[in-house]
């Protein structure tokens, strides 16, 4: 579906994407994970054929975006990072009018709109203007709009950023259904849980480069330990404790507000902490997540 070699995007002096290679197979759910400014959106814009690569090779659905942009876009569904719903149209018209850009007949557009409104759980809102919809509804409508041409490849740029937990879960459930139907999904996110929920395979991007690639599980196995112990110590300096904790588990990270111990056996490590006479104000043993992978790979927490 997607094939890229040495893909580069520069804006003047600034290099947003600095030579990345990737391949996405049909039916796959593929994710770009990384902080803001990592080059995820620039990559997505190249894949969606609205922005041409500065250098490198890119093939989408076996075609060249520079030559066949129009044909490729006809088979893509794009859900941009910021909602670009049409404020002059109501919910249903946002779907039917959009369908017309793909050359879909009016009758067929109406049929698909009804189906997609059902899918996005917006049937009751069909005649409503777009503006008063909640963030979650707008997002679902944007995703429904991206599906109006029955795309082979759906691109979602930060699909759940800014949504409340309930709205996110509903959206994930809808995306999961798409995935089950065999639609190829490519998404960007800076949420670890989202990547773990939805992606079969992902790349971690940082500074315009790919720093790791694999399934969520394999990335955790490669770059982290099965369990992590989080230690908090009130308001005291943490560096003093780091020395005393040296050697527990495989690795240790001192963050501004807590110390993380990476260990195969979290409870054992926590017991060892107490045995050394260190008494944190709170101890949390949890399974390792992509957040830990990211921290390990980039040396910092995932904050904007």
């Amino acid at each position: 579906m997607i094939y890229a070699r040495g893909l580069v995007k520069r804006f003047g002096d600034f290099t947003a994407v600095d030579g990345i290679d990737l391949e996405v197979a049909p039916g796959e759910a593929f994710g770009f994970l990384g902080p803001n400014g990592a080059g995820k959106s620039s990559t997505m814009r190249m894949i969606s054929c609205v922005s041409l690569p500065t250098a490198g090779e890119l093939r989408i659905l076996g075609m060249d975006p520079a030559r066949d942009g129009t044909r490729i876009r006809g088979r893509l569904g794009v859900c941009p990072q910021l909602d670009t719903l049409d404020p002059d149209l109501n919910v249903r018209e946002n779907l039917t009018t959009y369908a017309r850009y793909f050359g879909i007949s009016r009758a067929e557009a109406r049929r698909r709109a009804d189906e997609l409104l059902e899918f996005a759980r917006l049937t009751e809102k069909a005649a409503s203007p777009v503006e008063p919809l909640s963030g979650g509804m707008k997002r679902r409508l944007t995703i429904a709009r991206a599906l109006v041409n029955e795309p082979d490849l759906v691109l979602l740029d930060e699909p759940t950023t800014g949504l409340d937990p309930q709205a996110r879960h509903l959206l994930w459930e809808r995306l999961f259904r798409l995935k089950q139907r065999g639609t190829t999904l490519v998404l960007t996110t800076h949420y670890m849980d989202e990547a773990e929920q939805l992606c079969d395979r992902l790349v971690v991007m940082d500074g315009g480069r790919i720093v790791a690639e694999g399934s969520p599980r394999s990335l955790i196995e490669t770059y982290s330990t099965p369990e992590v112990v989080e230690l908090r110590f009130g308001l005291e300096e943490l560096d003093g404790y780091a020395g005393k904790l040296e050697g527990i588990g495989e690795r240790l990270d001192v963050l501004p507000d807590r110390i993380l111990l990476y260990a195969p056996d979290g409870d054992g490590a926590a017991a060892e902490v107490h045995r050394r006479g260190v008494n944190p104000s709170s101890v949390l043993v949890r399974r390792s997540s992509l957040e830990d992978v990211f921290l390990h790979l980039t040396g910092r927490t995932l904050v904007d």
């Binding site: 969606s48 941009p80 670009t84 049409d86 850009y101």
Partner: peptide, 14 residues
């Protein structure tokens, strides 16, 4: 402001 053209340019329209 409305980003109407941004949305349209993601379709085959040029």
């Amino acid at each position: 402001y409305a980003k109407v053209f941004d949305a349209i340019l993601a379709t085959p329209v040029r």
